[in-house]
Write a protein that binds this DNA or RNA. Structure first.
Lengths: 185, 185, 185, 185
DNA sequence: AATGAATGAGTATTCATTCAT
DNA sequence: TATGAATGAATACTCATTCAT
């Protein structure tokens, strides 16, 4: 308990707030929102507890910042994949690889997203984050698909990801491709 | 301090365990898994705190029982809707009404389901519950659709429900119908 | 810090709530309301911290109970002194000895009373306690004096006590007697 | 996070220490000594937190300065009222109007005074302030009354003020006048 | 001369769980 | 069989004060 902690003389530390947000994302991934506490984040970032409440007014603020960052990262991938597609066929491929490679590839972010959904159900501040995020991914899809299709496709992607996230036998890339093709055919 | 507590003389109370599970579901719905505590459940069921640990070995046991019951209720609706369908067309209508009426109709159970998904991500005992549930709804769909279609359809349903649950403008029944038709066409 | 605390195996302890209220009064006397914390009270009563919040919903509740008890004790002395007086002269003597002996005699209760006054200025629950107490002491005085005199006398008593409490040279019994005589002459 | 904080470019600011003392008095009035913190004072004065410990060695120093200023203000009113009185009758009127108008007129200073009394009970530095203050108001009274009368009158004033401060039905000016007349008759 | 950042001790409160009756 | 009392670990958050810039 004691003796193992090396001295930690780090008075001047610009960018600490930033590192704390990253640490929060790590903790949410590993322990869930329910297991995300000031202490756990501080420990993960190797920072004294008091530092948390210096940089953030409340734990909710930390969560909101963390999820905002997560949503921005995922949304960027969406944008990049879809803006790189030159025609509809390429867009379909982009969606498939988005789900197979980006979303399901990293167990990590997948759990994060689901955590965010649930947290948003109780926390209005977080709900704003999810909604902005949903809107942004829909817009990315609308580069290539009409509004109705974009919306439905977005829901299908959500379902495929969630299902795979929770299943013992998640869908293979081939199965993902099949489902999306079928819908978009 | 006195006078406000109504008498509660219920020493012999068969079925109390049962009522506690229902109370747990109520609390999960209203406060989320994170806000579900022995105390809150006991208060909701109007039962002394000590009664909780008398009937359940741990809070996790309570959660598992509660979610098992919830899953059974939802699965039953799935079964009933789909077994009532005489042909594929009727099955398609059944799926549509399942989503529009049963799942989205009651905000209640919708939140409950998402809560379960996330809780399952951390808790192996709960994961078994979700998986049994997923398997069962897939089976119900397989009465009318081939295995691949059933699986994909199940994911689509999930996505539509989740999306609507979190959106400020949830899909209308007409939009739900459109999405499912399109997929099954 | 450790090693000096003897085992404290006291699971069954009826009357604990009561002892906690007394402990709270002790702490208020010694440390002031500002220095009265759950921890300090628990330590004084030699009881685990968790016990405090088991018996009281909040620290304010503890304060209210403690001051209510204090007020009741002081009011009782008032009642006894004054009801023992057979005529007006005896009543005057009773008031004098009340101030000199009972109120100023014990530095203890004197500080307690002033603490209560200030706490009441911010805390409506405590204000109710002070007001009930004021009313009661006025009633006791009204056994022997008309309403106006009772009220004014009550204020004079307050002033004499407060002044003496804070002064480096508090009034002697003779001076107290002189002041009261002069007013009642 | 941004945009809401108005610019505050006040590097050179003589008289800041002074403004901080006034801000402290404001905070004590509104939140009590218990609620008076570096942060609250800095916020009230619209000054960075670090400025507090730059100008004052400790919070106690701030309190002492604040109360000293408060006592000086009240004492000045005492002096002015009483030095304006040309004879004993005028002095009696002066005392009455002191209590009715100056002390009870402004709820403000009334609470402040009582706060000071209690704080003084625990804090020797503050006790010196109250005692100097008491001495000074007694001196003012001694311009017109003998030493014993001055002392007793001072206590009566204290009692009338405290009583009125805490009562739901504070004394009317007429009642104040009656009490003081009776004592001085 | 002045301040934003940092920190560690402390606060009220919640809670799962244990235990004596 | 049932329960009120008890407990210790944990939680979010506050704050006086120190320090590097």
């Amino acid at each position: 308990m004691s003796g193992s902690t090396p001295r930690r003389p780090r008075r001047h530390d610009p960018g600490r707030r930033d590192r704390l947000i990253d640490a929060a994302l790590t903790v949410i991934r590993e322990r869930g929102v329910a297991g995300t506490t000031h202490r756990e984040i501080a420990r993960t970032a190797d920072v004294p507890l008091g530092s948390m409440t210096y940089h953030f007014a409340s734990l909710d603020e930390v969560l909101a910042e963390a999820f905002t960052r997560h949503a921005a990262l995922v949304a960027r991938v969406f944008d990049e994949r879809l803006s790189a597609a030159r025609d509809r066929d390429a867009a379909v491929e982009a969606v498939i690889s988005l789900v197979s490679d980006d979303l399901l590839g990293s167990q990590h972010d997948l759990v994060l997203s689901v955590e965010l959904y649930v947290a948003a159900a109780r926390n209005p501040a977080l709900r704003a984050v999810t909604q902005a995020w949903m809107a942004r991914s829909r817009q990315a899809l609308e580069r290539h698909f009409d509004a109705t299709t974009a919306r439905e496709l977005d829901a299908l992607i959500e379902g495929l990801v969630l299902h795979s996230a929770l299943s013992t036998d998640p869908m293979t890339p081939g199965q993902i491709r099949h489902a999306i093709y079928r819908y978009l055919s």
